[in-house]
């Protein structure tokens, strides 16, 4: 029998830590029983269309965001809520907790997509081209903050106290440079890689979203593997995620100094004020209506 080919399509570049982790850890670990074949840069399937491609049998793997899954199943928006996950370890605890099972089951039953493991993307920070010091969400009032173009992201921007603007990523650098927007939010590695430090003045370490992705696999492919190979593949996925997680955490730590050296002001605001404002905004919003009862409490209880 031929080895199954696991085609993965994702929009990130080949140098992204997720790509490096999958190519150096995941691929080699499964090579005895499957061929890992990644495509980066979103050339096989457009960003945000990979899940349906898997579901329709045209792709085997993807790196999916909670926002993307919430377009199918609104309850996934809980994992894209601000100040929900405390840190990378908290994400893993939540993903492996029984509370996650109904979410995994639904994605498998209705999309045929198995959520293999959780990948750490980094803590999103507010990055502004203004000098004004930010202490509380009230200080963000009037700032045009670029957020990715979807309802969930725009809401996060609003809950931070800013005026969220959807600008395509390719136009963001110019928009920051000319002042069409006053700032953007991303993990520090993105600020570095996309050169936003060239056109912004400060980073407010809000850590408002500990961002995650799910590594996904076609349920059909999974079911076709022997239990032994399933276990090997699961371990390979977890190991790759862990490898990427440690790399990204290290990079984030180094970049605080790295970006200071580029002349940016970097400081922590009143995190308590941000956390309570944002959490309240989510609980009062329509998003939370789709969330299972008590889930926020359960997730909070898993934080160490």
């Amino acid at each position: 029998q031929d080895k199954p080919v696991l085609r993965l399509s994702s929009v990130n570049s080949a140098t992204d830590q997720r790509a490096v982790a999958l190519e150096t850890v995941f691929g080699p670990a499964i090579k005895d029983f499957a061929t890992f074949q990644p495509t980066w840069g979103g050339t096989l399937f457009k960003q945000g269309t990979e899940l349906e491609a898997i579901s329709r049998g045209n792709l085997e793997m993807s790196i999916a965001s909670a926002q993307e899954l919430s377009n199918f199943f609104p309850e996934f928006s809980v994992f894209s809520a601000g100040y929900l996950h405390r840190d990378a370890a908290h994400q893993v605890a939540v993903f492996n907790d029984p509370l996650m099972q109904p979410f995994k089951d639904k994605a498998e039953a209705e999309l045929g997509v198995k959520l293999l493991t959780v990948m750490y993307l980094g803590r999103r920070q507010v990055n502004l081209n203004s000098d004004k010091e930010i202490k509380t969400p009230a200080d963000m009032a009037g700032f045009k903050l670029r957020m990715p173009p979807s309802d969930a992201w725009q809401f996060l921007g609003k809950s931070l106290g800013a005026n969220p603007v959807p600008v395509p990523f390719a136009e963001l650098y110019t928009a920051l440079q000319t002042g069409a927007v006053d700032g953007q939010d991303n993990p520090l590695p993105t600020v570095m890689d996309a050169k936003f430090y060239e056109v912004t003045k400060q980073i407010v370490l809000t850590s408002h979203l500990v961002d995650l992705n799910y590594l996904t696999l076609s349920k059909k492919v999974w079911d076709g593997l022997s239990p032994e190979n399933q276990a090997k593949l699961q371990k390979a996925a977890d190991d790759a995620a862990e490898f990427g997680r440690q790399n990204q955490l290290k990079k984030e730590d180094e970049l605080v100094e790295g970006l200071k050296a580029k002349g940016l002001k970097i400081y922590e605001p009143d995190l308590g004020a941000f956390r309570s404002t944002v959490q309240k905004a989510y609980l009062d919003s329509d998003f939370s209506k789709a969330w299972p009862a008590d889930i926020v409490d359960k997730i909070n209880a898993l934080a160490k």
Binding site: N71, E110, S150, Q154, P166
Partner: peptide
């Protein structure tokens, strides 16, 4: 027809 289960990003 598959897309009856997916909603658009902003307007749903």
């Amino acid at each position: 027809w598959f897309y009856k289960i997916k909603r658009s990003n902003t307007l749903g």
